[in-house]
């Protein structure tokens, strides 16, 4: 239903505007994790263009959502059992974004009403997360849901209310996208929303690919697709390295 409404809006935007509607681009559309990868900072820039708003004299707001690939995640909680702290209760999320960042030109609550953001699924609290229960999917325990957000925020994987979209000049805006070193690989979606007077005026999406490249990619693929050969290789490498180290240290 939300998606249908969004689609309608998008279609209306496309019909009313000219060919040059909202455009965005990233300083780099393909991130390669190499051996020295310590995270990446990207610049996203965009132009409002000929959208329903007149960027020359009217004020507007920009909200940018970057979403990483969906993957299952399990949250475990430690409890004291017989004097020691043991992983006890768990909540399994069959699908949660591996990266999620929201940047905005003003604090979200000043841009539009919470219901508006809920309708477009903007913000972590509006993500449609479900947990696996004994009888199918259920709404997750709020403690576990907020733990997922907190843990991933600490890892730099979820970022909300941290990044600013700066409005450069008439109709131009930019923001920084921070990808930490532990960013998951896969397809990312970068969505840009233009708000005015508390309602959505335009939106678009572009893609971003994060991939392990070269040697690192090869090692990861090798380990996961040919685990037996990887194990044998690890042993042979260890034997050779150990033998060489022994020879060189005797000299």
């Amino acid at each position: 239903m939300v998606r249908f409404a969004a689609f309608l809006l998008l279609a209306m935007g496309a019909f009313s505007g000219a060919a040059e509607a909202l455009v965005t681009d990233l300083s780099n559309r393909r991130i390669e994790i190499r051996y020295s990868f310590a995270g990446a900072d990207l610049i996203l820039f965009g132009a409002v263009g000929t959208t329903p708003i007149n960027a020359q004299d009217e004020t507007y707001d920009v909200v940018i959502v970057v979403r990483g690939p969906e993957a299952p995640a399990v949250i475990r909680r430690k409890d004291r059992v017989g004097g020691i702290w043991v992983n006890n209760e768990t909540a399994a999320f069959p699908s949660a974004p591996g990266y999620y960042a929201v940047a905005s030109s003003r604090p979200l609550e000043e841009i539009a009403a919470p219901t508006v953001f809920a309708a477009y699924g903007i913000g972590f609290n509006n993500l449609p997360l479900v947990a696996a229960g004994p009888r199918g999917l259920v709404a997750p325990d709020p403690h576990f849901r907020s733990a997922l957000f907190r843990l991933r925020s600490e890892e730099g994987l979820y970022r909300q209310e941290q990044d600013n979209v700066s409005l450069v000049s008439e109709g131009l805006f930019r923001t920084d996208v921070h990808l930490p070193a532990n960013v998951p690989v896969g397809e990312f979606i970068v969505e840009t929303f233009i708000f005015q007077d508390g309602s959505l005026k335009a939106r678009n999406r572009i893609n971003l690919t994060v991939d392990k490249e070269g040697f690192e990619r090869a090692a990861y693929t090798f380990a996961h697709h040919y685990p037996f050969l990887y194990g044998i290789t690890a042993v042979l490498v260890a034997l050779c390295a150990g033998w060489l180290a022994g020879i060189s240290s005797r000299k």
Binding site: A71, R76, R77, L151, H224
Partner: peptide
Amino acid sequence: GLVLEPRELYSVADIEELGGSH
């Protein structure tokens, strides 16, 4: 590490630790 109350009681495991599909 086992006896003291950990600073963070919750932990997150991703797909690989679940022995999931590859």
